[in-house]
């Protein structure tokens, strides 16, 4: 059944829509779903954001990275005031080539979003470096109000089959470390031992879905909004602009 037929002929048979379409279709599907008044969870943004500005129903962009158990634990500690004011966010994200076929803007969007989310706004200064030796490498340096800062490096050239992720948040009264290095087990099978990363399962997906359901049932805005996606995408664009122009970019207000 086509999506068009689904939305026109069987709209009364479902209460909400979850979209996992390719980027070229995701926004138009979401537009159609929300036009029917259906709460919609949509992945594969940010393409076509402009058509979604006036959604007629709850629209939650999928920011699955926010729902990783480790990230949730860090954010909860910030929100609870345990760490004090956020001072420094440090992220190392190393990916294998098979995870990096998308554009660099899309690749860095999860981390521009995490930075904006944790600091509660967009950066005021952006400085980016890329590697001449490896076009799949980028690092960016963000300055936030109240002297907050983020330093993030992302590479897409780790050997195949696994990745590495480390996130540290230094706050004024405490710190949180969500780090694959802390969560490695060892496999002895001859020669040097191999490190085995303990994965976090797929509670990121279930956590995200639960938030979507809760927002519907509680008739409130979802924890992730289109404005979050727009802000992260705008910062990602500024990161790339800094890399291309080799200039410090003054951030714009997307808060």
């Amino acid at each position: 059944m086509s999506t068009e037929a689904l939305f026109t002929e069987q709209a009364n048979d479902f209460d909400a829509v979850v979209i996992d379409a390719n980027p070229s279709q995701a926004a138009s599907f979401a537009k159609a779903a929300t036009a029917l008044g259906k709460p919609t969870l949509v992945g594969q943004l940010p393409g076509g954001l402009d058509v979604l500005d006036q959604a007629d129903a709850l629209l939650m962009p999928a920011h699955t990275w926010r729902f990783l158990p480790s990230i949730q634990a860090v954010k909860r500690s910030i929100d609870a005031g345990k760490l004090g004011e956020p001072c420094l966010l440090r992220i190392h994200r190393w990916l294998p080539p098979e995870s990096t076929t998308e554009s660099i803007a899309k690749r860095i969007l999860p981390d521009t979003d995490l930075a904006c989310w944790m600091f509660g706004g967009a950066p005021e200064k952006i400085w980016t470096l890329q590697s001449a030796a490896n076009p799949d490498y980028i690092q960016f340096h963000l300055g936030f109000t109240n002297d907050g800062m983020a330093m993030i490096d992302i590479t897409g050239s780790l050997p195949a089959d696994d990745g590495y992720f480390s996130l540290s948040m230094i706050g004024g009264t405490g710190a949180a470390y969500a780090d694959d290095h802390h969560n490695m087990n060892l496999l002895y099978s001859g020669g040097q031992p191999n490190a085995l990363r303990t994965n976090q399962g797929r509670t990121d997906l279930t956590g995200q879905l639960q938030e979507f359901v809760n927002a519907i049932s509680e008739q409130r805005e979802a924890a992730v909004t289109l404005a979050d996606t727009s802000r992260a995408a705008a910062v990602a664009a500024q990161v790339i602009e800094s890399a291309q122009t080799k200039q410090v970019i003054e951030g714009k207000e997307y808060n």
């Binding site: 001072c87 420094l88 470096l129 590697s131 330093m151």
Partner: peptide
């Protein structure tokens, strides 16, 4: 052509 970074602090 090497790039890098340093994050340093006396964080309590």
């Amino acid at each position: 052509g090497i790039v890098g970074s340093l994050c340093i602090g006396r964080i309590g």
